[in-house]
Design a protein around this nucleic acid. Structure first.
Lengths: 340, 340
DNA sequence: GAATTTTACCAAACCGTTTTAAATTAATGC
DNA sequence: GCATTAATTTAAAACGGTTTGGTAAAATTC
């Protein structure tokens, strides 16, 4: 059913009906109510593409999906979708070819000029992120999931990576650990830098030396967790504790420790960052995994909110949100064997 | 830049330009080439919403995303997005509230009538799936990822779950195992039924009894893998081998076996189904995990293809694709200890 | 070389809304 | 009760393309 027919049935003009449904003030309460009722009764719904053409709004927000190590992506998306489900706003997923980094900026470019999205969410930014500069230049509203040091105003939602890792590391130091290894995320991402900083600051606060041979960077995969942990554990003296960037990394570390006969929670301590997954929980690992925790799904849902706020005119400078991170201690952390 | 301006610059009518760009035959090769070149040079791109309004096509395909245990979802999506990235077709993600099963059918209903998608992908169907009946009734094109027994024609792409599990189980029997446990997917899903069948058929072919106490169903989570494996291993005599529905389940089984001091690959054998993830690989587990393998990402990419074919008129009855599944033997399978 | 077909292009109608600008009706002031 | 103002409603013009139904020019046929 089209607007015209529907309006005719009501004995009103299309204009009035349109305004009634979109909540404009210049229509009497009585008519508005009648229109709303009849709309649900007769099942009239405006054609979404006509609306989009007429309003110039795309009715969608864009998310770029990388190829590798993105197991947390679906949680974020889930949160996003959950919140956006009630609005008339779609989520548009674009794939990104990680192998071709110059392609990324083109991709964002295309996304922005294509007019298919009203806003974009940028993930895992870098301190000086080209994408942010580009989107700002193009005037496309966007929210950064994470942060950037770039001197371009940008709305962001981030978790306190630095604080989380500082606390995690401090806790390990408190337990008596002196050689603490860190398996961080990809080199160059802001969140990795923040975590690095949290780690170094914690060491420095206690006067412990920073040893670059105990720090590694890479994708959040079980495999890298294993490889890095393995090579760290081959050093002498070997580290007695690990700070890990993700659950998958932690799996790799557990595996590496076992492979050389070390018992986690006794000979080696581990704290990892947990994005909270329904299918793999820190609580259930053996031994249960101490973790810094922050729900990726919640971040997705909140990101949706913030994007909606941006779109309804809230100034970019106001939209900054830094989430605290819980530190949950479980069995994988204990004093080092020497001090036992 | 609008079509009108662009056409004017070329000294052509909007009609001709439109046809040239959409590849209609009634335009000379020479003009078509010129139009194409100028379009890229001047950066003209048709307004997507205008196109959608005029053509009546939504330019998007819908995917419904459940909440729980969907770690393979992002791989599927990745494949989908990869393939669709070159087309002018978006992916629309709708969230589903798993807790409210009646909501699901409403969701599909809304999705179909909203006119926001040209086609829908249905995941994890049941033998008599309401969603399939609904979409058929509504005349919305759709592809089922999996299969259904429902007597409604539907296009599908599925992997040979039955054959895969039959082979896996047979292999375990060949090795000498007699008590083989099976931790399957959610009760009622077609793929779970197929796997059940493969399992039972393999047993039957060798004259082994089917013991319902060795079969469990549930979401693909590490936790359920652990819990089920644990309870199976407490039986006497205990199973000497496991067939598992997912990598996460396998993680749980490994954990359970370890927790009671059993060595996998010697005292307990495990074969799991591997959807191929970049962040967690069967090869790298310790011991490396024997697996039935089929790439979820490839399935996503192919699904995109098939949906496009459906949309361009290929008849539903022709679109059926059953993928064979590899069985890859690694260290987690060995003869049972008794026969060693 | 006239009649016919084919090729290449175009003007105008249409897709289904929103929104601007104007017209009607109701309410208020005096 | 008339002029003025405010509250509703509406006709018509966007929004930016595609597609229908032609027409003029070029190629073919006889």
């Amino acid at each position: 059913m089209k607007l015209r027919e529907f309006a005719q049935q009501l004995g009103l003009s299309p204009t009035t009906v349109s305004r009634a449904l979109s909540g404009y003030p210049e229509v009497s309460e009585k008519t508005r109510k009648r229109v709303a009722e009849e709309a649900t009764r007769l099942g009239y719904r405006p054609n979404i593409n006509a609306v989009r053409l007429a309003t110039g709004r795309a009715g969608a927000i864009g998310v770029v999906m990388g190829r590798s190590g993105e197991f947390h992506f679906s949680e974020f998306m889930g949160g996003l979708a959950e919140r956006l489900g009630t609005e008339d706003i779609d989520i548009l997923v674009s794939p990104m070819d990680d192998k071709n980094p110059t392609g990324e900026i083109q991709l964002y470019s295309r996304l922005a000029v294509s007019g298919r999205v009203d806003a974009v969410i940028v993930h895992s930014p870098e301190p000086n992120d080209e994408r942010i500069a580009l989107l700002h230049k193009l005037g496309m509203p966007f929210l950064v999931h994470g942060r950037s040091d770039i001197d371009v105003p940008h709305a962001w939602l981030d978790i306190d990576n630095e604080g989380a890792i500082r606390r995690a590391t401090s806790h390990l130091i408190d337990l008596g650990h002196r050689r603490i290894a860190m398996i961080n995320g990809r080199q160059g991402r802001t969140f990795s830098l923040h975590r690095d900083k949290g780690y170094r600051d914690a060491l420095q606060a206690r006067g412990l030396p920073f040893d670059p041979r105990l720090v590694a960077h890479g994708n959040f995969t079980d495999e890298l967790g294993f490889r890095f942990a393995r090579s760290f554990l081959e050093q002498t003296p070997r580290p007695t504790a690990f700070v890990a960037g993700s659950m998958m990394t932690a799996l790799g570390i557990y595996r590496a420790a076992r492979s050389i006969g070390l018992e986690i929670g006794r000979e080696v301590s581990v704290i990892a960052h947990d994005d909270v997954f329904p299918y793999l929980t820190a609580e259930n690992m053996v031994p249960s995994l101490s973790a810094t925790r922050s729900s990726m799904r919640a971040a997705g849902a909140r990101s949706a909110d913030l994007v909606l706020q941006l779109l309804s005119g809230r100034p970019t400078e106001e939209v900054h949100e830094l989430w605290p991170v819980e530190l949950i201690l479980r069995e994988s952390t204990a004093p080092p064997p020497e001090s036992a």
